[in-house]
Computed example of a mutant assay.
Amino acid sequence: MFQQGSTRSTAVRRAGLVAALGLSLALVTACDGKGGASGASSSSKDRSGSWQAGDCGGPDPKQTPDGYRALGCDDPGATFKALEVTSAGILPGSVQCPAGTDLMIRVSVSYGSSKDGSKGGGIPTHTVCGRNLSGDHPGDAGAGGGQLVKGDCVSSSAQEVACATAGHDAFKVLDLVKEKEQCPAGTSEPMELTLSIGRPYDVICTAPV
């Protein structure tokens, strides 16, 4: 089944100050676009125990409100297609899905059950990087959801926001790098993040929107 994801809070050093960072890197927006890029959780069970890129899925009525199941892409209940299937990742934020990913769901092997018949825990095996079948794509650059990518916008506290509704204190993400010296020309606000093992970048290169 799809095991619950986790949302990580870290810190960002900007202009000598420490600000809260709320980037959801382990789990992103749900298929229907409801729920933000932080605070969502998902669980599900696939039909064969193995996902592949191109497979589709949708909400699982037996695991409401946030469960998903594998479905045929022509099934009326299908809401997303897997762009990529990758490892589960050991630490939050260590899994990076391709651009355009609207949701990330951790798949696990179930084991045990409670006396009332509810499912027990499981061992994470891999992550499904899904893109909505609808026209709603919060994971696209600038849309305000999904993983942080080049072209997104962030607030002064490094929280992702939709570029179309960004305030005066918002910044455009020019690149995501390990060292601020690697930031491209035009970067005026390199936001240095606290160390997080597994995250592929430690600096958000930004400039005012």
Rank of each mutant, 00 (worst) to 15 (best):
G142D: 06
T125I: 13
S157C: 00
V154F: 02
E160K: 15
P190V: 01
G151R: 06
R199F: 12
H168K: 14
D175T: 02
G130W: 07
S110F: 02
I197A: 15
P124N: 10
S113N: 13
L176N: 11
T194Y: 13
D140Q: 11
G139A: 03
G121C: 08
G145S: 07
G120L: 07
P184K: 10
D169Q: 12
L195G: 05
D140M: 08
L195A: 14
V109I: 12
C163W: 01
K150I: 07
G167A: 07
G142Q: 05
A185V: 13
E181A: 15
S114R: 14
V161E: 03
L176S: 05
K119G: 11
E179L: 12
Q182F: 02
L148F: 08
K180P: 03
S134M: 04
G151F: 04
L133E: 04
V149C: 05
A170C: 09
Q182K: 13
S134L: 04
S157E: 05
S118Q: 08
A158V: 01
S113Y: 13
S188G: 10
V149L: 12
T187W: 08
T194C: 10
G167E: 03
G145Q: 05
F171R: 13
E160Q: 15
I197V: 15
V149K: 10
E181D: 14
E189Q: 15
G112A: 09
M191C: 04
E189S: 14
K150D: 00
G151M: 09
G135K: 01
G135Y: 10
G167K: 02
V128F: 09
D116S: 12
T194A: 15
D140V: 06
S110W: 03
D116T: 07
P184I: 04
H137G: 05
L174H: 03
P184Q: 03
Q159T: 05
C129F: 11
E160Y: 00
I123Q: 12
I123T: 14
H126L: 09
Q159V: 01
A166G: 01
T165M: 02
V149I: 15
R131K: 15
Q147C: 07
